[in-house]
Amino acid sequence: MARRKELQGICNDLLDSFISRYNDLDGYWALGKFQTYLQSSAGQKLTFSLAGTATEKSPFTQTQLYYRQALCRHLAIRKMQSSWVGKANLCVRKHSRTKLKCTLRATTGLGREFTATACVFARPHDPQMELRSGVKHGPSRQKGL
């Protein structure tokens, strides 16, 4: 029987996937692209709404859609009802010039909150220094299901 406290494990799993080097966006590491975006824009954070209503418009809709679907897959695998999750957000904040603080927060319909946080070293994306991934298989996290 599924329990709401399993949401903590889902938060941990999704955040681990998000900060992984395999989180690929257009052939490059997604967090490097996020770091570049945050440094070039006036904003200090990116927020991806994974459940509930969207909090703000994101320029990385592919990422938001992938992780929304990933949350649904995790809930289905654990035989949890999607209605148990009232709100879930994945937030990427600029911690420093080379670090990002990533937080995944899920709130149940009953108000209980589960959080996973990681501070990650992420240099800004530089296509002159990075090689684009040419792999057509494997755990690329931004190519949908």
Rank of each mutant, 00 (worst) to 15 (best):
residue 1 M to K: 08
residue 2 A to T: 06
residue 2 A to Y: 11
residue 4 R to E: 05
residue 4 R to W: 07
residue 5 K to T: 10
residue 8 Q to V: 11
residue 8 Q to Y: 06
residue 10 I to G: 00
residue 11 C to V: 00
residue 11 C to K: 05
residue 11 C to D: 07
residue 11 C to L: 06
residue 13 D to I: 05
residue 14 L to A: 05
residue 15 L to W: 02
residue 15 L to I: 03
residue 16 D to C: 07
residue 17 S to I: 01
residue 20 S to V: 11
residue 21 R to N: 13
residue 23 N to T: 13
residue 23 N to S: 15
residue 24 D to R: 09
residue 26 D to Y: 14
residue 29 W to N: 01
residue 30 A to G: 05
residue 32 G to E: 04
residue 32 G to F: 05
residue 33 K to E: 11
residue 34 F to M: 13
residue 34 F to D: 04
residue 37 Y to R: 06
residue 38 L to F: 01
residue 39 Q to V: 00
residue 39 Q to M: 14
residue 40 S to E: 13
residue 41 S to Y: 12
residue 45 K to C: 08
residue 49 S to Q: 01
residue 49 S to N: 10
residue 53 T to N: 14
residue 54 A to S: 09
residue 55 T to M: 12
residue 56 E to K: 15
residue 59 P to M: 13
residue 59 P to T: 11
residue 60 F to H: 02
residue 60 F to G: 05
residue 62 Q to G: 09
residue 64 Q to P: 02
residue 65 L to A: 12
residue 67 Y to K: 08
residue 68 R to E: 14
residue 71 L to Q: 03
residue 74 H to S: 10
residue 74 H to T: 09
residue 75 L to Q: 00
residue 78 R to Y: 06
residue 79 K to Y: 06
residue 80 M to C: 08
residue 81 Q to R: 15
residue 83 S to I: 10
residue 84 W to G: 03
residue 86 G to M: 05
residue 86 G to L: 02
residue 87 K to G: 02
residue 88 A to M: 01
residue 89 N to F: 05
residue 89 N to G: 04
residue 89 N to Q: 12
residue 90 L to G: 02
residue 94 K to R: 15
residue 94 K to G: 00
residue 95 H to N: 07
residue 96 S to T: 08
residue 99 K to M: 10
residue 99 K to A: 05
residue 100 L to N: 01
residue 100 L to D: 03
residue 103 T to D: 10
residue 104 L to R: 00
residue 105 R to Y: 04
residue 107 T to Y: 04
residue 108 T to W: 04
residue 108 T to S: 12
residue 108 T to P: 00
residue 109 G to L: 08
residue 109 G to K: 12
residue 111 G to P: 04
residue 113 E to M: 11
residue 114 F to H: 04
residue 116 A to V: 01
residue 116 A to R: 01
residue 118 A to D: 07
residue 121 F to I: 10
residue 123 R to G: 03
residue 123 R to T: 03
residue 128 Q to W: 04
residue 128 Q to L: 13
residue 133 S to D: 09
residue 136 K to V: 11
residue 137 H to K: 15
residue 138 G to Q: 12
residue 138 G to M: 06
residue 138 G to A: 06
residue 141 R to E: 07
residue 143 K to P: 03
residue 143 K to W: 09
residue 144 G to S: 12
residue 144 G to F: 06
residue 144 G to Q: 08
residue 145 L to V: 13
residue 145 L to F: 12
residue 145 L to W: 14
